[in-house]
Amino acid sequence: MINVQNVTKSFNGIEIIKGVSFEIQKGEVVGFLGQNGAGKTTLMRILTSFLPATTGKVTVMGKDIASDSLAVRRKIGYLPETPPLYPNMIVKDYLIFAAQLKDVLSKDIPYQLEKVMAECGIEHVAHKVIGTLSKGYKQRVGIAQAIINDPEILILDEPTSGLDPVQIQTVRQLIEGFKGKKTVILSTHILSEIEQTAQRVLIIKDGRILADDALDHLLKTHHGMNLEEIFLNIVKRDSNPTILKKT
């Protein structure tokens, strides 16, 4: 479904992403795990075609992200690290605006609107001004805009960042609801988040993938270690990098 081949990204001559390759199958929930500044957000921005890769190739459902960007963008729902919300807009108007830009047919907009607002639990704030909402609700509105066109792929950058435990639980349940329905890529540095939602983990450090494995397999091969210990172990071992391939 998503094929990333030898992708690099440089800013002002500094290589942020260093020859990354991986493949994601349909329906997988994949977690990008890494410290701050590891390159998770840059990688996601490349996948969403917000940023072009310096070298390498990315295809989504067989379509090249560089040459067929519009077609790829129709398939992807994206929640950036900061929810992309217009503070002066009313929630419902914002979601209609998002639906229109994402090519949802006019006749389908009322149904899609009702569906995503119910899924995200934001029906009762539909007529509120976005700027007046709590952080948790803003995040839910951000997720609602990402799924308004019922995309096959969902890319969520730090979806629970800055939320309180109750809000984290709500957003997590929301993401779990996508399991089996959509291909989900989420980035986080919160390990419990990955443990609870992802099936596969990509550990990223300094723009390189240090490990790419199914979560169950990763836990099984590191006897008795939890994900945090595994993560720290792999990151520390990075002085002698050996990529652990998915089995």
């Binding site: 519009l70 963008r73 992309p84």
Partner: peptide, 8 residues
């Protein structure tokens, strides 16, 4: 802007 330019 990230929302705007990642829509089709």
């Amino acid at each position: 802007i990230e929302f705007l330019v990642t829509t089709p």
